[in-house]
């Protein structure tokens, strides 16, 4: 990617260079393929979501962009600079908020930020002013002298965000930023991200496994097993599914399979079987439900009709649920 890097170096405006670009990005951990030919572009001043279940490869993308691992194939560019070949250039333009806390709890809030500033070559009065500004913006000014170990989880996350912003990055990467936050703190975080996008022209990439969080992104890429499944705005993705999503719950997997087969013949639809549930997409779902329940009495335990969600997009494109085996891990984490 020498040509791209050179172009970036000679064009100060960088108008044509996307903040983040992945080109045929692949990565494997030993024999396990974590990413396969992933290509996508994040546009300037957007909040871009990487949505996927655990193991879908989104954390691998995050690690590659934050220069912590070198991909085994393809390239990842930030402002035109290759994360593998030019890591220090990439590092200086990128703010990072990791999933796990990375604060030194024995230091105060200000000491943590000062240390971070030093790592980016900032010092003295300029750094002090920037710390003051970031703390003020995040509502942390009155906690500036407190030891991090005395802060709540939500407060610590704000300090981590402040840490990621200390060098005024043009690209901000966040890995599962809502982890461990209560709904109020989560709302504050997203308001703040929108403010950064609108007023500071920051391009933001967020990885998430939460649908409601993905809904807040301007655009998002859905990943499954290291591959790109869909990309677009949440609205575009959902409107690509025709009509309503109809779910029929049955008492066993066998019943579901046979019900799906018979429905396919009778109503000329293409139902999918997800465990004990039969799922299909249909215009005017409520009318279809009435006909189906009459046609197969006693086999259907429960019915639901809904507008498509992002999870439906995932199911439609992959043929399986968002939380298949990942659900158990989730429970352990809570």
């Amino acid at each position: 990617m020498a040509t791209l890097s050179e172009r970036a170096a000679h064009l100060p405006a960088a108008a044509a260079i996307p903040p983040i670009e992945l080109l045929q990005l692949s990565h494997n951990y030993g024999s396990r393929q974590a990413l396969e030919n992933l290509s996508l572009v994040v546009r300037p001043r957007e909040i871009f979501g990487l949505l996927g279940p655990n193991g879908s490869g989104k954390t691998t993308v995050f690690r590659i962009l934050s220069t912590l691992i070198v991909p085994t194939g393809g390239s990842a560019l930030i402002n035109g600079f290759d994360a593998a070949r030019d890591p220090n250039r990439v590092r200086s333009q990128t703010g990072i908020v990791f999933q796990a806390s990375n604060l030194d709890i024995k230091l105060t809030v200000t000491e943590n930020l000062r240390h971070q500033g030093h790592l980016y070559g900032m010092s003295g009065a300029g750094l002090a002013a920037r710390i003051h500004e970031v703390l003020d913006r995040l509502g942390l000014s009155d906690r500036a002298g407190d030891y991090v170990e005395t802060l709540s989880g939500g407060m610590r996350r704000r300090v981590e965000l402040a840490k990621g912003l200390i060098q005024s990055p043009s690209v901000l990467l966040l890995d599962e930023p809502s982890t461990g936050l209560d709904p109020g703190a989560r709302r504050d975080l997203w308001q703040y991200l929108a403010m950064l996008r609108d007023r500071e022209d920051v391009s933001i990439l967020v990885t998430t496994h939460m649908m409601e969080e993905a809904e807040r992104c301007d655009r998002l890429a859905i990943l499954n097993e290291g591959k790109l499944v869909a990309i677009g705005s949440p609205w575009e993705l959902k409107s690509a599914i025709g009509g309503d999503v109809v779910l029929f719950e049955t008492d066993s997997e066998e019943t579901a399979a046979s019900l799906a087969a018979r429905m396919a013949v009778r109503f000329s639809v293409e139902p999918a079987v997800l465990g004990k549930t039969v799922r299909l997409e249909r215009e005017e779902g409520h009318r279809f439900v009435a006909g189906a329940v009459e046609a197969f009495p006693g086999e259907i335990d429960a019915v639901s009709v809904s507008k498509p969600s992002l999870e439906d997009v995932f199911i439609q494109r992959t043929g399986h649920r968002f939380w298949s085996e990942a659900k158990e891990n989730e429970l352990w984490q809570r």
């Binding site: 402002n79 200086s92 980016y120 900032m122 300029g126 500004e133 060098q167 005024s168 990055p169 043009s170």
Partner: peptide, 21 residues
């Protein structure tokens, strides 16, 4: 709320921090 960019330079202008700091 003033914007932060006004007061602080973008990181692309931040020089390499060197070794000592």
């Amino acid at each position: 709320m003033a914007t932060m960019t006004a007061a602080s330079p973008r990181s692309s202008q931040v020089q390499s921090p060197g070794i000592l700091l």
